[in-house]
């Protein structure tokens, strides 16, 4: 695996069971980094074995979870998320959460890597999907707003870390004016609903779709903040 004689190539997998996985690969390939990364599409447990980190793309969370089970990747994924960096966008964010509201009848499978309760499809049908500018201090060029594309997006209802869990960092907020008015959970405070990008340890989720823009700053953020630090001094 050695390239340039010493540094190992870091492999970032993109779960490619269903959804917008190709767009994530295109964005990762545009990054300019001081480490060589390679990207692979993950459809089997063998593919996943090769990965140092993983992106779970947008798509339909019910479809992705079923295909993961039928393809024998679901259990390996549950193990993978315990120790490796993972970023979930939209459907991927739902899969990373511990609990979901608005699941399909009979419930749906989750990976449960992040201490978050999330509601599917928080704004309603597709006609409520929207774009909104986000101010994100943690990104490169933080004064430039990031165009968040929210498509039948989920809403974070609550952060539920226990004292032994990694703390949760809120990376991006949505203006409260843009929140859906009717969400069926009066027992949660409204504040977490404005969170649209959060990080907990090696795990990162966004309820919107950075991969649908030409702006790679969230991909850059994930790789620099969650992945590369694990490889400092590792050859």
């Amino acid at each position: 695996m050695a390239r340039d004689g010493h540094e190992r190539v870091i492999i970032i997998g993109i779960l490619a069971l269903q959804g917008a996985f190709a767009e994530h690969q295109t964005a990762l390939q545009r990054l300019s980094l001081n480490r060589t990364i390679d990207t692979i599409f993950v459809r089997t447990a063998e593919d996943l074995d090769r990965c140092d980190a993983l992106i779970i793309p947008g798509g339909e969370s019910t479809t992705i979870a079923l295909l993961a089970r039928l393809s024998g990747v679901l259990e390996p994924l549950k193990l993978f998320v315990k120790t490796k960096p993972v970023w979930g966008t939209c459907a991927g964010a739902i899969l990373l959460s511990q609990a979901v509201e608005g699941a399909k009848k009979g419930g749906q499978e989750l990976l449960g890597a992040m201490s978050i309760t999330i509601a599917r499809n928080g704004w309603g049908s597709q006609v409520e999907s929207f774009e909104a500018d986000l101010q994100v201090p943690g990104l490169r060029d933080p004064v430039v707003p990031f165009t968040g594309i929210f498509i039948r997006a989920p809403v974070i209802l609550a952060l539920t870390p226990t004292p032994s869990d990694h703390s949760i960092i809120v990376v991006a907020h949505l203006s409260p004016d843009l929140l859906p008015s009717a969400l069926s959970s009066p027992d949660h405070s409204a504040e977490p609903r404005t969170y649209v990008a959060v990080r907990q340890g090696l795990h990162f989720l966004t309820t919107f779709h950075p991969e649908l823009t030409n702006d790679d700053r969230f991909h850059d953020y994930f790789v620099r903040e969650c992945v590369l630090p694990l490889f400092v001094g590792v050859s």
Binding site: A16, L17, Q18, G19, A20, F21, A22, E23, G58, G59, E60, T63, C90, A91, Q126, V127, E128, S129, F130, E131, A132, D133, I149, F150, I151, R152, S175, P176, D177, L178, H209, L212
Partner: peptide
């Protein structure tokens, strides 16, 4: 209200992108 844009071509074609491979 609050500045979000509804019904952009980006969210219309974006939903189709989420359906890919399905």
């Amino acid at each position: 209200d609050g500045g979000g844009s509804l019904g952009t071509f980006g969210v219309k074609s974006g939903l189709a992108q989420m359906l890919k491979g399905g």
